[in-house]
Design a protein around this nucleic acid. Structure first.
Lengths: 335, 335
DNA sequence: CAAACACATGAAAACCCTTACATTTAATTG
DNA sequence: CAATTAAATGTAAGGGTTTTCATGTGTTTG
């Protein structure tokens, strides 16, 4: 491995001067700069990030926590899209992404310890299970952080305007003439799940629509199966709804299956609206009317929030709420 | 930051001894071990990975190259599933994943230089564009590597048995009575695209079925749109096929759309078979008959191949071909 | 009981880089 | 031309760890 000293030796300058050239210090003559750069080229010198980070205490690495409690890891479509957008943003600024394990050299640790060990400059948490103690510890630490889809007063956060989205969903169904509108929620252990339910309740109330207890079914975001089950139940209540607002596209898709299975049609017999706008939503038959989460924007905003903290060398606790967009497609019909 | 020296000071031992305790050396008495471990606990000591890697030349980091030429980044469903499985495997062995940028401190570099700079222990390349000069350079380097879906005699590789899969696809359609079978290929710049086309040709030949030139349409794996266009063309040839083997599920989905758009039905009028078994394939109507790539197995095998090289401290060039599975669903019908 | 040994510990160098400060050299000023 | 200032370069310490080798202590052996 060729080091700064070999460059120094070859050119006759000191290691310090070489370092200065490499780091674009101003007080170095053009002549020496040229000579050193030539030697760098000739010997194929590359800096060593470990040595660099050791002295500078800056790693140019951002840690990533993916929620694994839901078992999706990198396959989670929403978080995935967000993280890709985030990656592109921070990459342009020179930062790389390190995916956390919870072990140091095979020894179990916490996220926080792990990231301290790795010396990351900040972390992004894409994780929907708010009760995770380790995640909370991370958010509360002094490490710059940004969290997707979780509320916190101890960390910067970015999330979609779930409540507004729910209201728009109900409003839209209402505008189509629906009055009996049920809700299939996401896990109520998640922030998004709770907020979307809350928005639904508010909207129903504002229209003075009644919400029979059995109109609210609890599902699980990633599971089409739970949407299926929820809808099957909804079809069996004494006074079934004419429209269903599902808190996630997967739930909506499951619901549509259940409706079909029962011999009904979407949107003929039941209107269904989702949330997320995952990729498949457009290609389904009928295509899914849904509330689009602006994953790209969420990623970029998260990047801004995090890099700002890193550059200011100070943790910050802003929050950004990103608007959602109603995507009108084929799964709802006026009554 | 609490260091090894503070532990040393607190306990009265030397830094060397502390280090030995931390690294489970045998020649250290139980008494001192206990004392040191207590101090570690008390002071909340954490090792510093940069310092450690600097001396040991081992980072416990695996670099990841995602093919960005296709613009999907982390959203690519196939690669994504593979990398998640890979991550789980190597995580269990104590390795973390670093996603590469192509810049060092904002200066443009090659992948290889970047990874050398970061001092990664090995790399995994999930990338389908075989012409990328930088990727080639990386594969040919002495850095342990494993590549998904690319052939190479200079790197370990793992890929699905594309040829066999194509043959099974054609065989299956043949067994249903189809004789006029077209192919919508992936990019022929990709290994998978080429192989699947080759397998199709071989199979057609073995059944002594003719392949009119216009039965082969070139598409692009990630693009449903190109499947759509390809199929639209196929519908307009003088003697249209009765079945289509698409080299990717997205292509198949696009094709199905085109068929519907033209007023026909799947599988009623045309049978369509895909490749990949991406998540949506099951939930489409009709559900898509396809060749399943065993993403999880591919990830695990890649992990094995790479870690073996890392542990042996020697680059190795094995290849593993993972079988595919025919998933019979609803998009094909006998004639 | 001296000699040989095993065992536990420590001193110090090495890993590669950055940076505050000192020093030298060149340029400017009165 | 001496004196002051600015610019260029070098010295050396420091960052946190590992590891080789030496040293010291206690144990076994002949």
């Amino acid at each position: 491995m060729v080091t700064i000293y070999q460059i120094a030796k070859q050119t006759g300058y000191s290691a310090a001067t070489v370092s200065k050239v490499l780091n674009n210090y101003q007080n170095v003559s053009l002549k020496t700069k040229k000579a050193i750069l030539e030697a760098v080229e000739e010997l194929g010198y590359l800096p060593n990030s470990h040595a660099r980070s050791l002295t500078t205490k800056k790693s140019w690495i951002i840690g990533v926590v993916f929620d694994e409690s839901q078992g999706a890891g990198m396959n989670h479509p929403f978080f995935n899209a967000v993280i890709e957008s985030f990656r592109q943003y921070v990459d342009a600024e020179g930062y790389d992404l390190l995916f956390a394990s919870r072990s140091i050299r095979n020894k179990q640790t916490t996220y926080l310890d792990y990231f301290k060990y790795r010396g990351v400059d900040g972390v992004i948490i894409v994780c929907s299970a708010s009760e995770d103690e380790q995640v909370r510890e991370l958010m509360n630490s002094s490490l710059p952080s940004v969290v997707i889809d979780l509320p916190s007063t101890n960390s910067s956060v970015v999330y979609s305007d779930n409540i507004r989205g729910s209201i728009e969903a109900v409003q839209y169904l209402h505008s189509l003439g629906h009055r009996k509108i049920a809700h299939i929620s996401g896990q109520l252990s998640t922030f998004a799940g709770k907020q979307r339910l809350q928005g639904y309740m508010e909207a129903m109330k504002s229209f003075q629509l009644s919400v029979p207890e059995e109109y609210i079914m609890v599902g699980s975001f990633l599971s089409r199966e739970s949407g299926h089950i929820a809808m099957a139940n909804l079809l069996n209540v004494t006074d079934p709804p004419t429209a269903v607002y599902a808190a996630g596209d997967n739930l909506a898709i499951g619901a549509i299956h259940a409706i079909r299975e029962a011999g009904f049609e979407v949107p003929g017999d039941y209107s269904v609206i989702g949330f997320d706008d995952i990729e498949v939503s457009q290609i389904l038959h009928p295509s899914l009317t849904t509330l689009r989460q602006q994953t790209e924007l969420i990623g970029v905003k998260s990047g801004e929030l995090l890099l700002h903290q890193i550059h200011a060398k100070q943790k910050d606790v802003k929050s950004i709420v990103v608007p959602v967009e109603l995507m009108i497609r084929g799964s709802c019909r006026s009554i």
